[in-house]
């Protein structure tokens, strides 16, 4: 019962924070509300027993997305971009009405669902043995529906290329992001020295644990990316130039490895086929490669296109 009340309160809170994020007068405030909202949703996921999703939501949905948005707000402020005035009430009313209708329709659809539909839980459980991993979510992600994940990692690559291609032509060959000037000895600099080893450890663990417990390449990669970003913000490391061969190898390595395994599978029974006896090792290999590339890609996404001249 307390659980139910907690859930109801959580739901209301989530809705309220979401509203605040949407309607907030101040953009920065909205983004902050959005980060809070992400954390609350992560909480909701744990309430639903989906710890993997909760981790992903917290790390990616709230964390990285929040960082991206905060960074963007800061850039716009620096660029002196003003906020537009809100739309007229009439238009707002119509928009609101139609959104309410849409939400209602979704609600109706939910209400009409068969409460006993079992989904694929049982099927996954049956095949878990052959997947080579103990975490059913990882099994789905990297084996049963590994093809989705392959495409997904490539999506990250597309976006990175897209972000880079938004650079000014004159900065091509330069390093991503603006140069960070952390105060020497400031908080950031201190954390920058202190945190990386821990973060690295945590990240590698999350990746490694992902095969049997909640976690995995995405969550782990995000942590690694965050670590690198922190260090970079501290001014301790700088991104290599976008034209650097090793940088490009890093971002491509994971997906390429995945693809190589997938194609190699053709000779072992079919595209993306992971023979059960080697599945675990293969998945761990893939996860390792992916984590590296994901970490690099996510970090570079946050850093943005090169905005500094080439050497």
């Amino acid at each position: 019962m307390t659980g139910a009340i907690f859930d109801i309160v959580l739901c209301l809170l989530i809705l309220a924070v979401a509203l605040a994020a949407i309607l907030g007068r101040d953009l920065f405030g909205s983004v902050v509300f959005f980060i809070v909202y992400g954390l609350l949703v992560a909480l909701a996921w744990t309430r639903l027993g989906a710890v993997d999703v909760a981790l992903a939501e917290a790390a990616i949905g709230a964390g990285l997305t929040g960082v991206l948005l905060v960074g963007a707000v800061a850039r716009l402020r620096r660029g002196g971009v003003v906020e537009p005035t809100p739309p007229r009430p009439l238009a707002r009313g119509a928009q609101m009405g139609i959104c309410v209708l849409a939400a209602g329709l979704v609600g109706a659809a939910i209400a009409g669902l068969d409460p006993d539909a079992a989904g694929l839980t049982a099927t996954v459980a049956q095949n878990l043995e052959a997947s080579g991993v103990g975490n059913p979510v990882t099994a789905v992600l990297l084996n049963f529906r590994g093809y989705d994940t392959l495409l997904e990692t490539v999506v990250l690559l597309v976006v990175l290329i897209g972000v880079w291609s938004l650079a000014e032509d004159r900065y091509w060959g330069g390093r991503p992001g603006l140069r960070q000037h952390a105060k020497p000895g400031g908080v950031l600099a201190t954390y920058g020295r202190f945190l990386p080893p821990l973060g690295l450890l945590a990240g590698v663990y999350v990746v490694w644990a992902g095969t049997d417990q909640p976690g995995g390449a995405f969550q782990g990669g995000t942590i690694l990316a965050a670590v690198w970003l922190l260090v970079a913000m501290a001014g301790l490391v700088d991104a290599p130039p976008v034209t650097a061969r090793r940088l490009r190898l890093t971002i491509v390595a994971g997906p390429a490895l995945f693809l190589a395994v997938a194609v190699a599978g053709i000779f072992m029974g079919g595209f993306l086929h992971l023979p059960p006896e080697h599945a675990k090792q293969l998945i761990q290999t893939i996860e390792a490669g992916l984590a590296l590339s994901i970490a690099a890609t996510l970090a570079l996404l946050v850093a943005g296109p090169p905005q500094r001249g080439a050497r």
């Binding site: 694929l120 099927t123 996954v124 095949n127 084996n143 049963f144 529906r145 590994g146 093809y147 989705d148 599978g265 029974g269 079919g270 595209f271 993306l272 086929h273 992971l274």
Partner: peptide, 15 residues
Amino acid sequence: VLAVGGWEPPLGIAL
């Protein structure tokens, strides 16, 4: 029809 990874739908993805 190619079941990716040898996993038949609904568990897997068919091409």
